[in-house]
Design a binder for these strands. Structure first.
Lengths: 157, 157, 157, 157
DNA sequence: TTTT
DNA sequence: TTTT
């Protein structure tokens, strides 16, 4: 359920390698810095460029895949939502941060060799998923297919 | 996993009440006819209108909610993907049909009283979900929260 | 031209009446506060809600229409892009602000009576446009139709 | 103005070189065949693939750029709307066709060498625009910057 | 600060 | 066939 739509679609390039951390429960939390540039001409015909640097967070399996396959410079498609956070800095001042919480990720432009940090893995390239998470103590191969997000094999495909 | 993005976002009004059918396994398959109109001015300054009539399909729980709460005239937000189908008509001729397969639905503009056909129900208004399906023989209330699409309670929310 | 895609789609409700200002050149700059709420269940089955408050900016004619027709509580569709701005506060500290720059707006759910502040106007209800601006000293009715964003009357419509 | 939203976002690969035609007034009309593939696992754990072939139309300058820079196999981002058309075939039977009318295009994944058919040109790579058209008898360099879709140089960029 |  |  939701009251409202909060949707972000980005296509950009990574400014740096992904940063992967893990929660206490073992869930991956990966952060990307993603650049999107727009260009316009001003009144004098001069070209102006402006780049936005997005902070993108990916959780669980999606975060693991991002950490394994993405690296600096790589072009990527991200779909997610905007989250505005407020926290108090060490100086007692309020700080604000805006993040894009990804629920879909897709590497663009071929390539797709693995990053240095990538361990040997069984997963397919370019995979994306919604939710799913690390779920400690529950092996992925025990997952019933229906949990993959397909309501029913009866759905025409 | 996917190779490519196929995403549709519609905001429109229903031309008719939803049509709900069920598969043999008991999954709801609901069809909507949704109008989106665009307007432009031609060279002579005359206003031209053009309406597209989209055929939207919703499966499983999402289809049930659509059948219960939507009705003719209602404004709705749909997110999904395009599917092109080919089949052979009774005259042996090839027929083509284009459908929008919804994976998100949201009623707009308040109102939201239930349709005539709606049985007494426990579900919240305006709910949307991805996949999930009817899953006969498995009561919704037995579902673990993690299956609702949230990877981990550790994710800041 | 652009290098990358930076796209935001919002459906939400206004937390307050629009705030309209004008640049020295007479262009409207309208700010909206837009709420989108998402809901999930935590591990214990309790419902959690989280609301994001978006700061949306609309320029030119689009800003004027927003100022005339929108008001507190109204549901609206916004399409635009994210812009991150940094400025220095009066205390010399860096401040950050995130805004959604709208290039499409559409009022939802009927209603659409004009706000108190709305002057008598000739424009249609629910209009949306991209760019276009106030362009002081240039009457809108002198605009050639082709500038409305339609490349050619030859395009089938 | 519009009553409703009809938006399509595609990321896919061209199944063939673009097909470029011109209207009598000299406007380019380019057609692309674009593949998007989705993958799911069925109940038995077998991987199923399904590919949709989209028919994308680009008009005016956007069509010219597509014709010059795109070719078979190239990955591309398309944003546009769905249009359903009905016409009568030579056998007197009704025929239906669904097209995506592009208003934004962006080449993905670097590369971007020009197609064989590309004439020498002055335009930047990866450009995208909305409307604008060929406008015979009107040199592009005579265009006022404001027509490029930016309402006012006063808008912070 | 909105909305259901 | 919807809607404003």
């Amino acid at each position: 359920m939701a009251r409202g739509i909060n949707k972000v679609i980005l296509v950009g390039n990574l400014g740096d390698d992904p940063e992967v951390k893990y929660t206490q429960s073992g869930m991956a939390v990966t952060t990307l810095r993603l650049a999107t540039t727009s260009v316009r001409k001003d009144r004098d015909g001069n070209t102006q460029e402006r780049t936005e640097w997005h902070r993108v967070k990916l959780f669980g399996k999606l975060g693991e895949i991002a950490g394994e396959y993405l690296k600096k410079g790589r072009q990527v498609y991200i779909e997610g939502s905007i989250r505005y956070d407020k926290f108090t800095g060490q100086d007692g001042q309020d700080r604000y941060i805006t993040e894009i919480i990804a629920d879909e990720m897709q590497m663009l432009g071929g390539g797709g060799e693995r990053s240095e940090r990538a361990a040997g893995g069984e997963r397919g390239y370019g995979s994306s998923q919604r939710g799913g998470g690390a779920q400690p103590g529950r092996a992925p191969q025990q997952k019933a297919p229906v949990e993959e997000g397909f309501p029913d094999d009866d759905i025409p495909f």
